[in-house]
């Protein structure tokens, strides 16, 4: 097994899995019915991506299936960004988290559709259509909330300020990524970083949101298996039945 590729596949998969899970938690809590439905569509797209990627990871692994990977791993084995495990504190946090991640996904999948790994490339091509739509929606919400009322402006600025530190992780180049980048499998992080900032700047300007400074961030990154306090609770819930009945099939 190419352990680099395996790790990389899980990083992609877990970002979608955990963000999709967060959206599933929010069902019936939306600000109005139309928005509740739309958020669920985004969640379903993300879980579909997670499933495809976890299947691919399971194939590489050879001893487990995608459901084991989704529900059976230890916390340190999950490789998602800290950003996506951030809880649904309110709609402002939810949509800011979504926007920051949507921009990353669009830029990343645009590059990955030309990945030398055929499976990654094909999943990226399919996912790109979905995340393009997600970004369209979340950008519009950032603009509406940023340029809506004074209250919504202040709230969304606070969400951006608070979540900003978690964006640092998106552009961290480690050995795994570097090797895969050289092989043409992983996307070029310096390109991603540039394009990500350009898109974020564009939307923030229309939304009258001020981009915060990037503070120093001291946790072990999620992609390396370190997690925030929120992850344990998330997994306790998500893995509940698997933990309670390890052998049962549902």
């Amino acid at each position: 097994m190419n352990t680099d590729l395996y790790k990389y596949t899980l990083r992609l998969a877990d970002n979608s899995l955990i963000l999709g899970h967060r959206l599933s938690e929010y069902i019936s809590c939306g600000p109005f019915l139309e928005e509740d439905l739309a958020l669920t569509n985004t969640g379903l797209d993300l879980l579909g991506q997670a499933e495809a990627l976890l299947k691919y990871a399971a194939e590489q692994n050879g001893t487990v299936d995608e459901d084991y990977l989704a529900f059976g791993r230890e916390e340190y084995e999950y490789a998602n960004f800290h950003l996506v495990e951030y809880p649904n504190e309110d709609y402002g946090y939810l949509i800011t988290r979504q926007f920051l991640m949507d921009v990353f996904n669009v830029v990343n999948y645009t590059l990955l559709k030309d990945s030398k790994d055929a499976m990654i490339a094909s999943i990226a091509a399919k996912s790109l259509k979905e995340v393009t739509y997600h970004l369209r929606r979340s950008s519009e919400w950032m603009i509406r909330l940023g340029d809506g009322t004074q209250e919504s402006h202040d709230k969304i600025q606070e969400c951006v300020n608070h979540l900003w530190m978690y964006t640092d992780e998106m552009f961290d180049l480690d050995e795994v990524h570097e090797r895969l980048q050289k092989e043409g499998i992983a996307s070029d992080l310096s390109v991603i970083k540039k394009q990500w900032h350009a898109k974020v700047d564009e939307v923030f300007e229309i939304a009258t949101i001020i981009k915060p400074e990037l503070p120093k961030y001291s946790l072990v990154y999620g992609k390396d298996g370190g997690h925030t306090d929120f992850m344990g609770y998330l997994l306790a819930e998500m893995q509940f039945l698997k933990n309670r009945f390890p052998k049962e099939v549902w």
């Binding site: 139309e34 439905l37 739309a38 369209r136 519009e140």
Partner: peptide
Amino acid sequence: SLHAYDKSMAMEAARDLYTR
């Protein structure tokens, strides 16, 4: 039918609601 605040939100809500 659906409820929306402006044209682009109406379009997206229609997509999310009626073309699933």
